[in-house]
Computed example of a mutant assay.
Amino acid sequence: MQTSAQNLTSRLANPTRFMSLSATALPWLGGIAAAFIAFGLYLAFFSAPPDYQQGQTVKIMFIHVPSAWLAMGIYLLVAISSFGLLVFRHPLADVSAKAAVPLGAAFTFLALITGALWGRPMWGAYWVWDARLTSVLILFFLYLGLMALRSSLDDEALASKLTAILALVGIVLLPIIKFSVEWWNTLHQPASVLRFGGPSIHASILVPLLVMAVGFVLAFTAMHLMAMRNEILRRRVKALTLAEVSRAGAGLPAGAKG
């Protein structure tokens, strides 16, 4: 069993094998994600009832909540990928982390924007310095910081290592976001889906929310695979270009071996 698992891991760690598998999976992932999101939107707007307190504005949650979950989940993926780079030197770990960071920033930004739109009718303001809101904003800046750090360094190996270290340090923010509503007095309500004892919201709201969450996860997975493929191709082109420059500098014809 252990040998089989090691063989599978070794096969998946091969960038060429990854390119082949991802090319097969991407059309299916994209189609299934689109179907889930379309069905979730139908349930959200035509099946889910308005909330007795929030009215129709509650339907913002079907975009806001999956985005917020992904904002945290993607950062966890970045941290795991960073750990894989620093500890195991996994060939695709840095590719995964680099590809995930911009997507995590996008979903975090979407969570902040939809949260502001939801908060205006509920709290009377687009923004308050609530513990949950503030910690998610810091997460957004952390994503931006990871992108800025990587782009500021010409040495890709050094950039990969430093961003991985920063990503692992930043993981302490995730439990702060998760438990901020229990640790401090905030305007956000406690968890109503991912909680001990099961969800506390009605099935008419829960089902569309979970369908949208699955659709968002599948959409992210497809976009992540596409971004990883682009990064692998970029690195291959860069390696070929450097090889050609090196041959040219040595006075060898293109395609010749040194």
Rank of each mutant, 00 (worst) to 15 (best):
L218Q: 07
F109T: 15
T221G: 12
M1F: 14
I138K: 04
A125W: 05
A227I: 06
F220Q: 03
L92N: 02
M61E: 04
G258Q: 13
L173P: 01
F220Y: 14
F196G: 09
I32Y: 03
H202V: 11
F45A: 05
E182N: 15
A243H: 13
Y42G: 06
K238F: 06
P190S: 12
S204Y: 12
I232F: 04
K161M: 09
M147L: 12
S135K: 03
S151N: 12
E182M: 15
R236M: 04
A38N: 02
A93I: 05
R234A: 10
A256H: 13
L8C: 07
A100Q: 07
L117V: 05
Q189P: 06
Q2N: 13
W118M: 04
G104H: 03
A203Q: 10
M212V: 11
I113R: 01
F39T: 11
S47F: 14
W118V: 02
L43G: 00
L29F: 14
R132E: 01
S160Q: 10
W183Q: 08
F196V: 08
L146T: 00
A33V: 03
H224Q: 13
A99Y: 00
S4T: 11
T163Q: 01
S22N: 05
V217R: 07
T134P: 01
L158P: 00
A227K: 07
G73Q: 08
T114I: 03
A79Y: 09
A248M: 11
T241K: 08
F107Q: 04
P208Y: 07
A125V: 08
R229T: 01
I165G: 01
G251L: 11
F62M: 14
A167D: 01
S200Y: 06
I205H: 14
F39W: 09
E244M: 08
L168H: 04
G30V: 07
I201R: 07
L70W: 02
V136F: 04
W69M: 14
A25D: 11
A71Q: 02
I171G: 03
I232H: 02
L174H: 03
V207Q: 06
L149M: 10
P49G: 12
P91Y: 09
L173C: 07
F220P: 00
L174I: 15
V245A: 12
I60G: 04
D155A: 09
E182K: 15
S10P: 01
S20T: 14
S47Y: 13
A116N: 05
R89C: 02
F45Y: 13
L168G: 09
Q56E: 15
P121H: 09
A35L: 14
I113H: 00
L26I: 14
T114F: 11
V217I: 13
V87K: 11
L110C: 13
A68P: 07
T24P: 02
I37Y: 00
K59L: 11
A203M: 12
A106V: 07
P208F: 10
R120K: 15
A239V: 05
A227R: 12
D154E: 11
G119V: 02
M1H: 14
Y75P: 00
A164V: 07
F141D: 02
F46Q: 02
F45K: 01
M226L: 09
